[in-house]
């Protein structure tokens, strides 16, 4: 059982490697969707620990929002703006992969290293989610397309979600609600914003957004 758990977590972590490898934005979104589904599996495995109402919420959030709605929404934006690939990131993708791998390893390392501090959660949760957070940061920092940033932000949220799953049993429901709201409204607004920016700036590239400086 534990092994299965860890396997799923590692799978989520490794999906970040794929993200950092690929150029195609469609693949990013697919990964997002896959991650959502993996979350769903993790929650299913944790069924016995979580109270029922909370459980239902988590199911809805992972299965419907994370796996379906958000990816669909994002790919709609992609299609609307005719974007399909991330061109010329700040650093070449093979470096990204190496960095992502190192970060993933770092995540494992942290989990191992601070093992004795974990009284109540699985060490791997902590390590992998940290690595996902850092990896998504790296994606945001290295990529140039604004839509990639949004997707990167989603990965960040996923990392945090993974972390929060580790204490899903203790978290009051209101926080999940808040999180849901945040993701929903966040994506909604970010999506609208991407549209707005693309209509104002012609190109969805972050280079255009550097007029405000000192």
């Amino acid at each position: 059982m534990i092994d299965l758990f860890n396997l799923l977590i590692i799978l989520i972590g490794s999906s970040m490697l794929y993200v950092s490898f690929t150029y195609r934005l469609e693949e990013y979104i697919k990964t997002l969707s896959i991650q959502g589904f993996l979350f769903f599996l993790i929650i299913l495995l944790d069924f016995d620990k979580i109270e029922i109402l909370n459980f239902i919420f988590l199911i809805i959030e992972t299965l419907i929002f994370k796996t379906i709605i958000i990816p669909v929404f994002l790919s709609k934006i992609l299609r609307k703006n005719h974007i399909n690939r991330e061109i010329e990131p700040y650093i070449p993708n093979y470096y990204s992969v190496i960095i992502a791998t190192l970060v993933l390893a770092f995540g494992f390392f942290i989990s191992y290293w601070s093992n004795d501090e974990f009284q109540n959660i699985r060490p791997l949760f902590f390590g992998i989610s940290i690595s996902i957070i850092i990896n998504s940061f790296i994606i945001i920092i290295t990529r140039k397309k604004i839509i990639t940033h949004v997707i990167g932000y989603m990965f960040l949220e996923n990392g945090i979600f993974l972390l929060s799953l580790s204490i899903a049993a203790e978290m009051p429901i209101i926080v999940n609600l808040g999180m849901l709201l945040d993701i929903f409204v966040g994506i909604f607004l970010l999506g609208i914003f991407v549209n707005k920016i693309s209509s104002t700036f012609e190109e969805l590239n972050i280079d255009k957004l550097t007029t405000l400086k000192d």
Binding site: I133, I146, G186, L189, I197
Partner: peptide, 30 residues
């Protein structure tokens, strides 16, 4: 244009910041 850029930076940076704060809250509950 400028206000759009400013608000984009605002929402993005703050959202990430707020997410980090959320991580902090999770750590607190851990």
């Amino acid at each position: 244009k400028e206000s759009l850029e400013a608000s984009w930076k605002y929402i993005f940076i703050c959202s990430i910041g707020i997410s980090l704060a959320f991580v902090g809250i999770i750590f607190l509950s851990i």
